[in-house]
Amino acid sequence: MFFARFSDVILGAVLSAGTLFMLFVIVPISVQVPKSNKVLALSPDFWIKIILWFMLLLGVQLLYQGLKTAKELLADEEIAAIEDAKTHHHPMGRSVFMVMVAITNLFVYFFLIDWLGMVIASIISVITFALLCGERRIKIILPIAVILPIGLYYFFLKVAHIPMPLGIFE
């Protein structure tokens, strides 16, 4: 309920702060503007600044709108959406934990590719992801986990002529 009520405020505040940081710190550091440029609109940072100012405007508008409506009662559709989310999703704490697990898994997958190669990393990841998704039929998971990455590896190697990394098996 808190998230639904304050999502505009959070988004507006983060967007405004992030945009200001980009405008006054990131862009001056990372966008090189040649001294020879005489037309402002042709400058490499012109377009970026236009986008960022527009984003700032949107962020402020969202923040203002969020602060204005945060005290109001939620609309029927919003309450229905929250109820629907409660029915289909885990409670907040568990959801956050599961998202962290999913993100960690993605990065473990990435590092496994570097170490063990695409095929082995994919086999391990399919099994892990399926188990974490609640699937327990290992007799179905295992063949999929083995056949799919090997099939894709040979497709890209033999048909598309794109070699996939094999890590320590290289």
Binding site: S122, S125, E135
Partner: peptide
């Protein structure tokens, strides 16, 4: 069921993204 589907989709994503330029940077 999605519990089979999503791990398969993930592997397709990883192979596909890597194949673009043969670089781990695209995966990042």
């Amino acid at each position: 069921p999605n519990s089979f589907l999503y791990p398969i989709v993930l592997v397709l994503c990883v192979f596909g993204a890597y194949a673009v330029g043969n670089t781990m940077f695209d995966l990042i």
